[in-house]
Write a protein that binds this DNA or RNA. Structure first.
Length: 471
RNA sequence: GCUCCCUUCGUCUAGCGGUUAGGACAUCGCCCUCUCAAGGCGGGAACACGGGUUCGAGUCCCGUAGGGAGCGCCA
């Protein structure tokens, strides 16, 4: 039996972090076992489902590079099929029409809650009921009245539910649309899903679904219920915890691989290993190593991982990904150095691509004035000779490479018997306007010869004006 | 309220009856150093509680507490 897993989001918004983790585990499990991963769009709630969010989910899956192996299945395309199965259940007396009004149901629920018992349908119409004029009945599944259901879960082990806890759930609304607990079962049977991997908020639905499998004469698939991902404060993940939308992470400069690496470690582990390439994840992932307890989302660790991926990633690939972030700040990346070179210089001093772009501002933009504090400290007459010497050497440099620049600055410092610390910081202030930038050779290199020389001249003029004023 | 699930450092986790309870993020200190970082070294920090079972429990069982989920003509 070849493994088939599915990820089944409902298109009522964006793909959130929890959904992405579920998708990842489904995808990994299928990959690991040479199986198939498919996507099912659960859009039966026509009130809330939109095509726009279908697209957003697809975009997120693509960004994460977890594309399904087959065309996505849309539940709205399958209404005829659901209708067919409902008719079949009706004919077999495994389902029945219910004319109970919402008012009666609400009242019933209130009474039960007041009595301290679990609210559930009382089976009023189960034995057959008189049609009510002008009312289209809902269809309810005739759930077993006694006995119990065993859920053999791949992560939780065995859980027992007694059927008297379960009521006759609605499988078709009065508007003719089928409902979730019914459609999942029909779809998972028709799609030949072998492993249902989903959040453990569905664990309580599982016995109902198993009963439907049995009513349909089908063998239930294997189940694996994943622990939830909570917000940093331990409550359910929501907007107030910051970004929960996967695409927001992309826009903030996180790498897809880093996000996946972070997510895979939420609820799964392989000994002490923290960093996993996609290949490693696929090779090592196993549901047996999935944890049962919920975890909290921790931005700091994600950030650290992202930094690792930036630091060790391929400069050309990262450079290509950096371009949109440069453009977002209004920088014309074509007018500057090779983005891959920016990555090489910046990669171990930033955690996100957005930060890298921001930290590269000095390459593309001039500055109005030198940072006053930095200029006061570093652009002083005593350093004028050194800056002039560096300027001359840079202007004459045969090859404009970081190594050559480094050699030139060192040579200059040595000839004037200055320590690097004495000369590097003034150059930094001269070239960037401020006291913070990458290593001095990389900084000068990225700015380019023309700009570097011009800015050194500007600094020399600044020093001259300053000594004139002090005289 | 009822049902189900869960419980190791602040956080993510390793542990699958005998461990000085390990790693990672974060944090603190030191080193390195042209700024900022990165890096190196080191420190502090956990088995929720109470009963059992056992020669021996973080590991098994039962309670308690706490957290989560479900109880819709949402998915």
């Amino acid at each position: 039996m070849t493994v088939r897993t599915r990820f089944a989001p409902s298109p009522t918004g964006y793909l959130h972090i929890g959904g992405a983790r579920t998708a990842l585990f489904c995808w990994l499990y299928a990959r690991r076992h040479g199986g198939t991963f498919v996507l099912r769009i659960e859009d039966t709630d026509r009130e809330r489902s939109t095509e726009a969010s279908v697209q957003v989910i697809l975009d997120a899956m693509e960004w994460l590079q977890m594309q399904p192996d087959e065309e996505p299945v849309y539940q709205t395309d399958r209404f005829d099929r659901y209708g067919e199965i409902i008719e079949q259940l009706l004919a077999q007396d495994k389902a029945y029409p219910c004319y109970c009004s919402r008012e009666r149901l609400d009242q019933l629920r209130e009474q039960q809650q007041a009595a301290g018992i679990k609210p559930r349908y009382d089976g009023h119409c189960r034995g057959g009921s008189r049609p009510v004029d002008g009312v289209t009945p809902v269809i309810r599944f005739a759930s077993p009245l006694s006995g119990e259901v065993l859920v053999e879960d791949l992560v939780h082990g065995r859980t027992v539910f007694t059927n008297d806890e379960l009521d006759d759930l609605i499988i078709r609304r009065s508007d003719g649309h089928p409902t979730y607990n019914f459609t999942v079962v029909v779809d998972d049977i028709d799609m030949e899903i072998t492993h249902v991997i989903r959040g453990d908020d569905h664990l309580n639905n599982t016995p109902r679904q198993i009963n439907i499998y049995h009513a349909l004469g089908a063998t239930p698939p294997q189940f694996a219920h994943l622990p939830m991902i909570l917000g940093s404060d331990g409550s359910r993940l929501s907007k107030r915890h910051g970004a929960v939308n996967v695409l927001e992470y992309r826009d903030q400069g996180f790498l897809a691989d880093a996000l996946l690496n972070y997510l895979v470690r939420l609820g799964w582990s392989h000994g002490d290993q923290e960093v996993f390439s996609r290949k490693e994840m696929v090779a090592l992932f196993d549901l047996a190593d999935v944890n049962k307890a919920a975890s909290r989302f921790n931005d700091e660790k994600l950030t650290w991982l992202n930094q690792q991926y930036i630091k060790h990633g391929d400069p050309d690939e990262l450079g290509a990904q950096l371009v949109p972030f440069l453009q977002a700040l209004g920088f014309d990346s074509a007018s500057g150095p090779d983005p891959a070179d920016i990555v090489r210089v910046q990669h171990d001093r930033v955690a996100t691509l957005a930060e890298m772009a921001e930290a590269s501002r000095f390459i593309y933009e001039s500055f109005d004035e030198f940072d006053p504090k930095a200029a006061k400290k570093h652009l002083r007459p005593v350093i004028r000779e050194a800056l002039a010497d560096v300027r001359a050497r840079l202007a004459d440099l045969a090859d404009w490479t970081a190594d050559e620049i480094n050699a030139a600055i060192h040579a200059s410092a040595e000839s004037l018997e200055l320590k690097m610390g004495k000369v590097a910081q003034p150059i930094r202030v001269a070239v960037t306007g401020g006291p913070v930038s990458p290593s001095i050779d990389g900084t000068v290199y990225l700015v380019g010869r023309e700009t570097a020389v011009a800015r050194l001249d500007r600094a020399l003029a600044f020093i001259d004006a300053r000594s004139a004023a002090e005289r």
